[in-house]
Structure formats: structure tokens, C-alpha cells
């Protein structure tokens, strides 16, 4: 298809889509409506489970199965990253020259570094009672760590980053979530049922299974993101393609 034809097709389709979507939106309840039946039920259920952060209750208790799927996607992406970003048969590792960092990258890193690190620590410390949790804490810490090394030196990062351990931690975190679901079955309840003692509302130990799963997710996300980023970093910094391969139909 020529570029012009493609654009013409797009515009025709986009007009139809826009009209249909606009018409659909007129049928929606008003913005800010007071009626949220599922939401209200979820809040009541979170109270019942003594989980102060309703979203954690939905994510790790009421709809924990969604989160199980979501963490499996992350796990799959980490494994997929390992596979896709592996060193190909014809590639080799180059010695890393010190301090060879793009100025724009350096600026980007140093700008975001303090923000992300502080935020990460704050979120992990506050756990599941207030906004945040394993996922947010994990991502932000893993990124923050990397931003520091990008802005500084790659060799240092390689020396410190225990990739083998993190690999294993990622798998353990992902597996732990699915195994924790079995606890319910073991005591004669349903899969992923929150059968641990619920504790006192608002306490760090409240919520039963929620903080446990939260921790598993934190381990998986924190280590998974580091491993995934490591794949990209190795490609960006270290792995060298054989002569001629990069030529191709290059333009």
C-alpha cells in the first residue's frame, strides 16, 4: 500500500471510530457519578478483610487472580528479555570504556535519580496501608538504582549487580505467588483465598495474605526489572556485532 492510500484509509476509519466513540460516550453515566456498584462492594469487602488500602485489597485479595496473571506477564517478559537480548552466536563482548556516557543520558539520569530513589524508599517503607506496594516500590527502586549507574559508570554496576541471584529471585517471586494461592486449597478453602489471620485494621500485620503476596510481588518486580534492564544495558553498552552484519540495508 502506498503511504497516501494508507493515510486515506486511516482517516476514513478514524472518522467512523471518532463518531462511534463519541456517540458511545454520550451513553456513559456522567463524569463523577455517585453510583459505583462494584466499587462500593469492594470497599465493604476491604473493610471486612481489614485492609486499609482498598486497592491492595482488590489487587491482592478480591481480584488476586488478575494480579497473578499480571505478574506472570512480567515474568514472561523477563524470560523473553533474557531470550531475545542474549548474545547471539556471532557476537562478542567489548571492553567497556570508562565514562562513555551520552551527555543527554547522563543529564536524564542525574535529573531523575534523586526523585526516584526517595520515592522508592518512601513507598516500600509505607507498605500496603497507604498508596504504594510491592510493584511500585520494586519498580522505582530498581530504576533508581540503574539511573545512578547510568549517570556514573557501567563497570561499577556490573560488579555490584548480582544477576544470577536476581534471576532466581524473580522466579521465586513469581512462583511464590502461585504457590501462596494453594494455601487456600490446602485448608479446604478456595484458590487464592485469604485464609491467614486478618489482624487489626490499620496495623502493619493486617490484611492476612495481602502483605505476604505484596512482598512476593515486590521481590519479583524489583529483581525482574533489574534483569530486564540489564539485558538492554548489555546490548547498549557491551555487546558488539560482527563486522558487516550491521550494514545490511542500512540507511
Amino acid at each position: 500500500m502506498s503511504r497516501r492510500l494508507r493515510l486515506a484509509l486511516f482517516w476514513a476509519a478514524a472518522v467512523v471510530f471518532a463518531v462511534a466513540f463519541t456517540a458511545a460516550c454520550t451513553g456513559l453515566p456522567d463524569f463523577g457519578t455517585l453510583s459505583h456498584p462494584y466499587g462500593s462492594r469492594a470497599i465493604a469487602a476491604a473493610f471486612h478483610q481489614r485492609t486499609a488500602n482498598t486497592i491492595s485489597s482488590v489487587n491482592f485479595d478480591q481480584r488476586a487472580f488478575d494480579t497473578l496473571g499480571e505478574e506472570s506477564i512480567l515474568f514472561a517478559a523477563v524470560l523473553g528479555g533474557l531470550v531475545l537480548l542474549r548474545r547471539a552466536r556471532d557476537e562478542r563482548l567489548a571492553g567497556v570504556r570508562r565514562g562513555r556516557v551520552l551527555p543527554s543520558t547522563r543529564m536524564f539520569g542525574s535529573l531523575l535519580l534523586p526523585i526516584t530513589l526517595v520515592t522508592g524508599v518512601y513507598i516500600v517503607a509505607h507498605g500496603q496501608l497507604s498508596p504504594g506496594g510491592g510493584f511500585q516500590g520494586g519498580v522505582i527502586l530498581a530504576t533508581g538504582l540503574h539511573l545512578a549507574y547510568i549517570a556514573a559508570d557501567y563497570g561499577v554496576l556490573k560488579a555490584i549487580r548480582p544477576l544470577a541471584v536476581l534471576d532466581a529471585a524473580d522466579a521465586v517471586g513469581a512462583g511464590a505467588f502461585a504457590v501462596l494461592g494453594l494455601v487456600g486449597l490446602a485448608v479446604g478453602a478456595a484458590y487464592l483465598q485469604n485464609v491467614l489471620p486478618l489482624g487489626t485494621f490499620g496495623q502493619l500485620s493486617s490484611g492476612g495474605l495481602v502483605p505476604v503476596i505484596n512482598a512476593a510481588v515486590g521481590v519479583e518486580v524489583g529483581s525482574g526489572v533489574v534483569v530486564l534492564l540489564a539485558g538492554f544495558l548489555d546490548q547498549a553498552v557491551e555487546i558488539v556485532s560482527p563486522t558487516g552484519k550491521d550494514n545490511g540495508a542500512g540507511r
Partner: peptide, 12 residues
């Protein structure tokens, strides 16, 4: 759950 746990185990 069975294949999920198997996947984690296999990777580990």
C-alpha cells in the same frame, strides 16, 4: 496454577 508453578520451577 500448575503450569505457572512449573514455569517458575523450570526457570529456577
Amino acid at each position: 496454577a500448575i503450569p505457572l508453578i512449573g514455569a517458575a520451577f523450570s526457570a529456577l
